[in-house]
Amino acid sequence: MISAEFRAVLHQLVTTPPHPAALGFRLDHVDTDGAVLAVPWREDLVGDAGSGVLSGGVVSSLLDHACGMAVWTALKTFQPIATLDMRIDYMRAAVPQREIFARTHVFRLTRSIAFVRGLADDGDPADPVAAVQAAFMLNSDGGRRAGANLAGTRP
């Protein structure tokens, strides 16, 4: 069970960070089993002009973000996390001009690492366009404060 307050936070984490907002990400569904994110089709996000197919990079962004959402859902709280590693298999090209969905879940949570899997589809979950497996570091800020990345030394 996810509280209304936490659901509101999760919704914000999909729609307000600049990159997801610029791509038009939407939180389609979230429960304790994981998250479903969607990215609407847009002409300026196509990889090959004229193909009408969203670039693989857009699908990568959506899967990365959806994996992060699954981690917060599994943790039942918000904390800084960082993608360590992400592997995506592209099984087929998406149908031109279709919205893409990413469905992700945490299959193992340890003290330091969350292991996440998911699938992307263009409307039918039984016919995926891509699969993802990713590992996330938990509490990734290591005590670094906001703005740490702007300082002179490399984190």
Partner: peptide
Amino acid sequence: PLLPALHGGSVAG
């Protein structure tokens, strides 16, 4: 935007 850091998806794309 807090750290601030580029999105992993920007870099992957």
